[in-house]
C-alpha cells in the first residue's frame, strides 16, 4: 500500500503525529515526549513513504519490518501507527493506562503494526539484525529498519550487533540513530560521549550517511533512497535532530526526556502545534 505524499502533506502528517505524542503522554501522565518528538518526522516518513506495509494486514509476510530499538519513544511510534490507520487515533489517550494495549514500551503481542517488543536499550538492533539475516537466509526481499537513540549506542550490544551486520553484509538493513544530543542525565558528550558516531559505524563496515536533518523531508528522502541503492553492506543513517522538536518549551531540554506536560503545558504545546498546522494549511 503505497501512499505518495508531497512534502507539505508529510509535514502536516508529522504535525498530527506530534499532537498525538503530546496528547498521549499528557493523558498517561508519564512517558517520553522529547525523543518521540525528535523522531516524529522519521516515523512519518517510514510509515507513509518508505516502508512496504499495509495497516489492513499488519502481519503480511513480505512487509518491511521496523524495530524501535529506542523503545521508550513508543508514543512517537504509536502516534504514527495510529495516523497510518493501524488503530484509532483516539486510543492514544489510553497510553500506559491499566488494561490498555498501548503499553509503556512497544509490545508486539498486542499492538497492531509493532514488529518487535523493545524497550531495554541495545536489544532492538539485534532483533532487527536477526530479521535482516532471516530475509537473506530465505531469499526474501523485505527490508528492515531500526531506530536507535544516541544515548542508546552507549550500550555494548549495539556494537555486537553492528559487527555482525557488517560482517554478514546485510544490505537489507538500515540502522538509524536519532542524534538529538541529549540523554536523561544531560548532554551525551558530557555523560559518556559516543562521538564520532558515523566513524564507529564505518569501522564496522557500514555505509554511513551523516548529518541528515531529521526535520527536513527532502533530506530524509535522499538518505533512505541512498540506503536503498547501497549494496553489499548495511547502511547507518545518523540523523541530526532536535529533542522535543515542535513544542517550544521542550526543545533541546534534557528535562523533557521522560516527563509528561501538566494541563497548562499541554495547552501551550497543542497551541504551538496548531500554529504549525495552520501555517502548513496556508501553503
Amino acid at each position: 500500500m503505497e501512499v505518495n505524499m508531497n512534502k507539505t502533506e508529510l509535514q502536516k502528517t508529522a504535525n498530527e503525529v506530534r499532537k498525538g505524542i503530546v496528547t498521549a503522554v499528557h493523558s498517561a501522565k508519564a512517558g517520553h515526549p522529547g525523543g518521540s518528538l525528535s523522531a516524529a518526522d522519521i516515523f512519518t516518513y517510514l510509515y507513509f513513504e518508505e516502508m512496504n506495509i499495509d495497516p489492513k494486514d499488519p502481519k503480511k509476510a513480505d512487509r518491511d519490518r521496523f524495530v524501535l530499538s529506542k523503545g521508550h519513544t513508543a508514543p512517537g511510534l504509536y502516534s504514527a501507527l495510529a495516523q497510518r490507520g493501524y488503530f484509532p487515533v483516539e486510543d492514544l489517550k489510553t497510553l500506559r493506562h491499566l488494561g490498555s494495549y498501548l503499553q509503556g514500551h512497544p509490545d508486539m503481542k498486542h499492538i497492531p503494526g509493532v514488529d518487535m517488543s523493545s524497550g531495554s536499550l541495545g536489544q532492538g538492533i539485534s532483533a532487527a539484525v536477526g530479521m535482516a539475516l532471516s530475509a537473506k537466509l530465505s531469499n526474501e526481499s523485505y527490508r528492515v529498519y531500526t531506530l536507535l537513540g544516541d544515548g542508546e549506542i552507549q550500550e555494548g550490544q549495539v556494537w555486537e550487533a553492528s559487527m555482525f551486520a557488517g560482517h554478514r553484509k546485510l544490505d537489507n538493513l538500515v540502522v538509524m540513530v536519532d542524534n538529538n544530543g541529549l540523554q536523561i542525565d544531560g548532554k551525551i558528550d558530557d555523560v559518556c560521549s559516543p562521538y564520532p558516531i558515523g566513524d564507529k559505524f564505518k569501522a564496522f563496515n557500514f555505509h554511513v550517511i551523516e548529518n541528515v536533518d531529521a526535520h527536513d523531508f527532502d533530506a530524509i528522502k535522499a538518505a533512505f533512497d541512498e540506503a536503498r541503492q547501497t549494496k553489499g553492506q548495511p547502511t547507518a543513517i545518523i540523523f541530526k535532530s532536535t529533542k522535543g522538536k515542535g513544542v517550544s518549551f521542550m526543545e533541546n531540554q534534557a528535562g523533557w526526556h521522560g516527563k509528561a506536560p501538566n494541563d497548562e503545558e499541554y495547552a501551550t504545546a497543542m497551541a504551538d502545534l496548531e500554529k504549525v498546522g495552520e501555517a502548513l494549511c496556508q501553503k
Binding site: A61, G130, L133, S134, A135, Q157, E160, H167
Partner: peptide, 28 residues
C-alpha cells in the same frame, strides 16, 4: 553449513538475533 550461524563471542547479540529470526518464522 548455510543454516549454522556463528555469531562470534557475543551471546547477548546472539539471543537478540534469534529473537529476530523467530519473529520472521524461523526456529532458532
Amino acid at each position: 553449513p548455510e543454516r549454522h550461524i556463528d555469531c562470534g563471542i557475543a551471546e547477548c547479540n546472539m539471543v537478540g538475533i534469534a529473537a529476530g529470526l523467530a519473529a520472521t518464522g524461523k526456529i532458532p
